[in-house]
Design a protein around this nucleic acid. Sequence first.
DNA 1: TTGTAGGCGTTATCAC
DNA 2: GTGATAACGCCTACAA
Lengths: 331, 331
Amino acid sequence: MEKVTIATVARRAGVSRQTVSNVINTPEVVREETRERVREAIAELGYRVNQAARQMRTGRSGLIAVRIEPARDGINGSVLDRFLHGLTDAAALAGYRVMLYTAADDAEEITTYDDLLSAYDLDAFVLTSTHHGDPRTSWLVQRGVPFVTFGRPWGAPDTHSWVDVDNAAGTAAATERLLSTGHRRIGFVGWPPGSGVGDARRDGWARTLAAAGLEDDDLSTATVDGVDSGAAAAQALLARPDRPPTALVCASDSLALGALGAARDLGRDCAVVGFDDTAVARAVGLTSVSQPLADAAARCVDLLAELLDDHAPRMPTQLLLLPSLVLRQTA
Amino acid sequence: MEKVTIATVARRAGVSRQTVSNVINTPEVVREETRERVREAIAELGYRVNQAARQMRTGRSGLIAVRIEPARDGINGSVLDRFLHGLTDAAALAGYRVMLYTAADDAEEITTYDDLLSAYDLDAFVLTSTHHGDPRTSWLVQRGVPFVTFGRPWGAPDTHSWVDVDNAAGTAAATERLLSTGHRRIGFVGWPPGSGVGDARRDGWARTLAAAGLEDDDLSTATVDGVDSGAAAAQALLARPDRPPTALVCASDSLALGALGAARDLGRDCAVVGFDDTAVARAVGLTSVSQPLADAAARCVDLLAELLDDHAPRMPTQLLLLPSLVLRQTA
DNA sequence: TTGTAGGCGTTATCAC
DNA sequence: GTGATAACGCCTACAA
């Protein structure tokens, strides 16, 4: 089986190479009859455009790069993986492929951008885990590299397109659910202030309680993420002598799992809601807020496709997606 | 900043383009003095080879493809993700990049091979989740596409290189641990026979008990994977009127988590060991067998590098890696 | 609407 | 040991 090039197709269809190229890239410019003939030849021969050759001419590779992170504490790491899967799917549909890279920190990641860009002519990047003072976005903006972030640019101006999940809406929904099932003293176990995501999750809880006239800052506690620290924090809240909470909204499934254990140890009946709908939540029947990760990934690809779709540079677009509450046994 | 090509470097170093190419690809053929001069020029200009151009000439892209699967039941899905991370790292070290693709089934995956191969000139594939009667390997062998599998070719002859983890050794270690802590009636909660992995995990348990003169087939039960089914299976075992087991080895963390719950519900003290050391195991303090995934990934890259390293086609290599037992509270 | 001519950056071949 | 030349497959002018 010889290599099938545009020339093979041209010969088979009795046209020039250029016409074949036109059929592929700008079909509207070719007469219908010719177009059909060429298409048949393409199908018969099983011709596929050679990306490398196309890339040489156009400077575009059809490749999108995204960083795969080590599964941090593991329990919440699966979020990125689900996003990755969605991204690969959506990208394939739009005619792109996903390339992976790793990096230990922001600086190393920037070095990798440089590498990837000059060696592979990457079309775009998808950044995850954005944070305050993120040096990656400014680096990319400065060189005019197309990119989208999954996660808003915390503290920085909205100069690029991004997709994010409305974390506050998630904890708000959780809190409302608890209110609707009769709870009146609803606590919150969250992270130390300063992380955009963590603050938003706390806000959703606080805002909802305030709207119900039930706000009480004493019901909120902050700690580093983890099962043990979640247990300790919940224990402190539940052991209060005066009117302890009967339900807890948690900033992560790890914290929620700890809270669940603390309640059990104290022999207390306490409703608990986690965040991220991880495998752990599914396994232990924990009610949890679920991020629409496949959807978020698809939107990232949409925005990227828009960015890469030649034509005028349009305004950066921001998308805030709503999470959903997965009801299980704990709330 | 102009595009830096091999010609720019050649001009700067005062040599021809070909000499620069030689310095990059076959340095030993260039005189040391010249080589140094060229290397300096490369560094000064920040030159990088253009993969697309190289690929056009050599037909090799420096890309390895691997399939990313949906996080199946989720609880065990993280295994693939950890492998993926290791693969990306190891590949980068060896000068390769990892490209992702998805596929709903084997047939679709084979179609994707065809696509990827003809459009992107992929250098090789890494297959995971091998199974009995896997059509993918024969397809690849037939066309001479280099590949390595993570998972042995169940039932098929060893015609290609693979890396796998010795599942039986994992459950054997778990069983030995339980024996050494005084348990004598050790049960097994596994999957229905027929899956290579599941059968191997059962074998390790059975073999170890037999060696201790304690074999008892009645202590083994099989069920589909999942927390609930694990709970049911463990419950059946533990509720036996005559000498029920005091410890359980499980084929997965999901099953183990179920077993843990069943024991608690029955008010029974029962040691439990899971398999795969997932986030859930870490979260609930479950002792579990851990696969050396980063190592496995690195070995896959080693084998691939060997395969791609020009020269004579050498014998396929098979690597069986030993898992380790992560001790936590449950055993 | 279709065809022809060049060139993208690299490496293989073959002189020098 | 080094340099000139051609070719990989495609796309973008421009000419017909």
